[in-house]
Design a binder for these strands. Structure first.
Lengths: 222, 222
DNA sequence: CAATGTGAAGACCTTCACAGCC
DNA sequence: GGCTGTGAAGGTCTTCACATTG
């Protein structure tokens, strides 16, 4: 448990998960070592950018041969906190909430869906994956008792801010918001918006104004 | 149909949908005009940033009173192409694909789910929202015949690139990828990754390294 | 000799601050 | 007077290019 490294630029942080993915793919392909050029290509960034990113928290390449994949993977995972298991709460158990509760990655080593909340009395008490759907008013207690650290909002837009407020006042500082609504976050709280409509509008601009993409895939990060 | 304005920086494009959202909220509140200061606050950006963004494609504020909300909304919608209806195809009709097919925004004025694809014979032929689930091999034909312009990938990671390739070779140039996989895009193709795991990893870093957020909500864009 | 790590340069983006307009 | 639109300044991020190292 490395407590706190030197602060890393947000642009870099948003690319680290990409590198993790790329490293995983390379491992699957049976590689054990990789030069920045290749890793950058798989991740969809420039080699210089990749090296600068890695340099912000250490230097663990070998000149002449590149990076040891397993080693780098462990290192990045540690920086990101992916070596810990974070307990995630989902609020709003409709189609999307259900889909996410069953999402494979959320069942991976780093994240675990540990609580489900809704306000619909017809749903409360029902069990999903062995977990009962609880009323959202029970959130403060549940967060404290079960050490829930992240919240996912999959409610309708109208109540998204209320739900976010409830999460924040319960002590949750990291929120992933799927509701098509702008969320005002409190001090020290990080909200990542995964707003499908917003993404589609960016794609819409791309369609409207002809092809101007570089061909590289970009993440919603930032 | 304004054909092609002067190119707009991607950072600006990724904020325009936020402004659209903010303007909608202000309209609901009964406002009809708004100064940059207020609009920026609702959208979660700085006032100067907002004004610079708008300046990239025109100038339609009124000094002394601000912006006419309806007018600005129409203007931004036009720049983004949100005044057109884009037909969206969804590939991978599992929990997540189903949830998105039923997603309210996709039923809004700008986007319309017009085709569903899968490879599971048990699902093919089944109707969702009146639409049959078709085999993914029918995609090239469907894209051409029905003028599908955007693709949403909600398949397992393992086949995501194959599905993306199929979309691209069918002529789709705008892809929203929900699969936890890196997608290599062709020339002129824009892929937006909505990778839940990637977002959670960024949140994980935030948790790990203590509160360093500004309190402002940021979108996945870029 | 191949490939990293990194100053320096360059590109891009945001903020500042104010002239100009309603 | 209030507020936009915008040059100029300030920051931040990315790319370049190369000295350095295994």
């Amino acid at each position: 448990m490395s407590p706190s490294e030197r602060p890393i630029p947000t642009t870099t942080v948003s690319r680290l998960p990409l590198y993790l993915r790329a490293l995983e793919r390379l491992l699957e392909l049976g590689e054990s070592t990789v030069p920045s050029e290749k890793l950058a290509e798989v991740a969809g960034v420039s080699a210089a950018n990749l090296r600068k990113d890695l340099a912000t928290f250490g230097s663990f390449g070998t000149r002449g041969s590149g990076y040891d994949i397993k080693n780098l993977k462990v290192r990045i995972a540690s920086v990101l906190g992916a070596d810990t298991e974070w307990k995630v709460a989902i609020a709003g158990i409709g189609n999307l909430g259900l889909a996410l509760a069953n999402y494979p990655i959320l069942a991976g080593p780093s994240f675990m869906v540990a609580a489900l909340f809704d306000t619909d009395n017809a749903k409360i008490g029902t069990k999903i994956l062995g977990m009962p759907i609880r009323h959202i008013d029970e959130m403060p207690l549940a967060v404290a008792e079960e050490n829930l650290r992240m919240g996912v909002i999959t409610t309708p837009a109208g109540v998204a801010q209320d739900v976010a407020n409830k999460m924040m006042s319960s002590g949750i500082k990291s929120i992933l918001n799927f509701a098509p609504a702008l969320i005002l976050a409190g001090e020290g709280v990080l909200v990542r918006n995964v707003d499908v409509a917003l993404h589609l509008l960016v794609l819409s601009y791309h369609e409207r104004s002809g092809q101007n993409g570089t061909g590289l895939s970009r993440n919603s990060g930032r």
